[in-house]
């Protein structure tokens, strides 16, 4: 094999850096969506690789549902500060108070309410592009997503009318009010993300690793007991050794029983896993087209 050879992670990395720099070159007011989750942690490292020694040419943006794991928000704030990045947080709580987001009667989940909150933040800061850490291997509707995903002035995705993407030539041209969502790690799998975290020795929030937690069995998964998920009368609260595989809201993120305490353990666990990452997300199970519908409305 020639020495001019890139392995799979180096290939994915150079593809993602190229996309990051296209964003910096083609848009006036981009933002990078940073939640503190593992995918956006990779995005941040890729942004450093794309733009150092300069400062990151875009602020970090997070929509806080108010139902985040506290460990995640602590990590998000600390990491942004370490990087010297500007972090903008907009909350669903605030959006509800301002009447931007309206919960349906009895609606507890903040999943749907994130959408108007995000769209309002885009409008407030006049962002013309948001970089996100979505991956095509996560979900069927995401498998159809472009790197540069065009959104009309309502923030909507039209899957039947996407711009063709040819070679590495991305069309970032927009008219007033339209914007772009850009996904540099579209081609990464869950395994690639963890292998990259290991290679780059990236810190991740503690909840990705094995810890003790009170859980209840609900809908075929272990949900963490907390103020928003109180145990029901007939439910058995168990203290389990668990970790989270994907982080959503605290009310819908299932924990998996796991002894994995290091990145190496997690990689071995994923290699042997028999269910997908999103198998532990209740928000995707509500219907076959749950993700497609949310994306059409402006979700990531």
């Amino acid at each position: 094999m020639s020495s001019y050879h890139l392995d799979h992670l180096q290939h994915l990395e150079t593809e993602a850096i190229h996309i990051m720099r296209e964003v910096a070159g083609e848009f006036e007011r981009p933002a990078l969506l940073f939640s503190g989750g593992k995918d956006s942690i990779c995005l941040l490292r890729l942004a450093e690789k794309a733009f150092r020694p300069s400062d990151l040419p875009m602020p970090l943006l997070n929509v806080d549902t108010g139902h985040h794991f506290p460990e995640l928000n602590e990590f998000r704030d600390r990491r942004a500060q370490e990087l010297g990045g500007k972090l903008i947080v907009r909350t669903v709580e605030e959006a509800i108070a301002k009447g931007i987001a309206q919960p349906a009667p009895g609606e507890i989940s903040r999943n749907r309410l994130q959408i108007p909150t995000l769209l309002a933040a885009i409008e407030e800061f006049r962002f013309d592009c948001c970089i996100g850490g979505a991956r095509r291997d996560e979900e069927k509707a995401r498998a159809k997503e472009r790197f540069f995903s065009f959104r009309d002035s309502f923030g909507q995705w039209d899957p039947k009318n996407q711009r063709p993407e040819i070679w590495n030539l991305y069309n970032g041209r927009l008219n007033q009010g339209e914007n772009m969502r850009v996904f540099p790690i579209s081609n990464w799998t869950e395994m690639d993300v963890w292998e990259y975290i290991q290679r780059e020795q990236l810190e991740v929030p503690s909840i990705y690793f094995s810890h003790k937690r009170q859980c209840v069995r609900r809908g075929g998964q272990w949900l963490p007991v907390n103020a928003l998920v109180p145990p029901k009368a007939n439910e058995d609260v168990r203290e389990l050794v668990v970790r989270v595989r994907t982080i959503g809201d605290i009310i819908s993120t299932g924990c998996v029983e796991s002894p994995a305490t290091t990145t190496t353990d997690i990689i071995a666990e994923i290699a042997a896993a028999r269910v997908t990452e999103r198998g532990s997300r209740a928000d995707d199970k509500s219907s076959e087209a749950a993700m497609e519908d949310r994306k059409k409305a402006g979700y990531f």
Partner: peptide, 17 residues
């Protein structure tokens, strides 16, 4: 992956796997 595809039994757009 898209609803119209399942309904019509066709593939509309490029899907990546």
């Amino acid at each position: 992956g898209l609803r119209a595809e399942r309904e019509q039994g066709i593939t509309i757009d490029v899907a990546y796997r």
